[in-house]
């Protein structure tokens, strides 16, 4: 696990982005780390742009407040690249992970990413529809995060997806989400 990593999530209300940040925190905790997960609280409307944050560290986390220089930027809805400044505060070694059917090269150009920054893409919504019939990209994004960042192992992530979704959903939906997590891990592309 990385010594300390800060992640910013961009999504739209109702997509499960906040849940993704929570599950990632749970997974990293069971991996032995210190964690933080929190959304930006504002008017909570379906479809509105939202941001959520993770801090993950080997040592105790004392910093509160939004992540200003995210090493990892997860974009759960590609249309947000035109709506908000997703690159704000991105350091030179930032990792972008975007939910899109497009190739990483095209997204790299759109983001004007530096050569030193990594760009990953995964068709998380398509995977979700195929896995459990709804365009909820969070579980496939989580699988892709594992691959792109190595912040936690795939097995630990799947365990935590089961734990989190198991509280609310039927077995069929849980299985669909674990499948989506695995496919997100396998199908994420770097470029």
């Amino acid at each position: 696990m990385a010594k300390a990593i800060e992640i910013r999530w961009h999504g739209r209300g109702g997509q499960g982005t906040v849940t993704a940040a929570k599950v990632l925190a749970d997974a990293c905790l069971s991996g032995g780390g210190y964690v933080q997960a929190f959304p930006e609280y504002g008017p909570e409307r379906a479809g509105a742009p939202i941001r959520a944050f993770n801090r993950i560290s080997e040592s105790v986390i004392r910093m509160y407040g939004p992540v200003l220089k995210p090493q990892v930027i997860c974009i759960a809805d590609a249309t947000l690249m035109d709506a908000v400044n997703v690159s704000e505060g991105a350091p030179d070694d930032a990792i972008y992970l975007v939910n899109t059917s497009k190739e990483p090269k095209e997204i790299r150009e759109k983001l004007k990413a530096k050569d030193s920054q990594k760009v990953f893409t995964v068709d998380a919504s398509k995977i979700a529809i195929e896995s459990f019939g709804r365009p909820m990209p969070n579980s496939s994004m989580l699988g892709a995060v594992c691959k792109a960042t190595n912040v936690v192992t795939m097995d630990t992530m799947v365990e935590n997806v089961v734990k989190s979704f198991g509280k609310k959903f039927a077995q069929k939906i849980i299985d669909g989400n674990t499948n989506a997590t695995k496919r997100g891990f396998e199908e994420v592309k770097e470029g």
Partner: peptide
């Protein structure tokens, strides 16, 4: 405890 900052943040 601080509202939202601590009450609604997930931490260890």
């Amino acid at each position: 405890m601080d509202g939202f900052i601590v009450s609604h943040s997930i931490e260890r």
